[in-house]
Design a protein around this nucleic acid. Sequence first.
DNA 1: CCGATTCGTTTCATCACCGAATCGGATGAG
DNA 2: CTCATCCGATTCGGTGATGAAACGAATCGG
Lengths: 126, 126
Amino acid sequence: MALTERKALDLWRRAMCSYVRTSDGDMTARQKAIFMTIALQPGPHTVRGLAADLNLAKPAVTRAIDALEKIGFVRRQKDQNDLRSVILERTVEGMDWLRDYAGLIVAAEAGEDVGRPMVDRKTAAA
Amino acid sequence: MALTERKALDLWRRAMCSYVRTSDGDMTARQKAIFMTIALQPGPHTVRGLAADLNLAKPAVTRAIDALEKIGFVRRQKDQNDLRSVILERTVEGMDWLRDYAGLIVAAEAGEDVGRPMVDRKTAAA
DNA sequence: CCGATTCGTTTCATCACCGAATCGGATGAG
DNA sequence: CTCATCCGATTCGGTGATGAAACGAATCGG
């Protein structure tokens, strides 16, 4: 395995472990992808747009938005130019979470492993 | 928001979106963290060790291992020094998946956005 | 030998998510 | 106006994850 790949995986592992450790571990990968797209990508975001972009069925996006709205990360806004459409907007609370999440990743990149060491004395000694 | 954080978030977003797009979106964050720890960290891994390390209840780890074993990424091996313990080992299949996953991250790091552009013509025009 | 402890697993009830099909409402074309 | 189309939401049955509690088996201590 290439060195950069190994490094990328280790970064990912640390960040992922930190996330699992700290949080209540709720958000789905799908929800994360959708929320981060809404929060970080330009342009008005719609259900169909996200569904097409992420190669998902529309109901899946709707449900993810439901979850994201429930925890207050995203807001639904009717499109006045086409009342069928719904514009998805990020909230301040969502951005706050995102900032913390970024801190997690940056810390992982710096090599910090949030949490205790992982050797198991008993088994390791055997 | 600091520049490095913004960059880290964008990397994360791209990788996460690629993952959602390509895969059938099955693995939980918890499962990923556990599997990557088993696959990338040294030392014999046990249920209790992972539970302590990731701050999880043991049953949660057992169930995650069940899922990982079911898809063939992890193997259970009885500890001959203590028949109560179970040593978790990675499999070749798991490492194959991990290699692909690393490729996803590296590609995201390189700035490639796997999939189609995300503007929605209709809404963007409004 | 016998009780206490430690391991991993199993059970239980609950809850969220999944894909597929369908819905009502809004829009656009004829 | 009328019909086809598009949008987002809802329903359906089924699957899987969740935390809490209790379990059998193995080990250790006295």
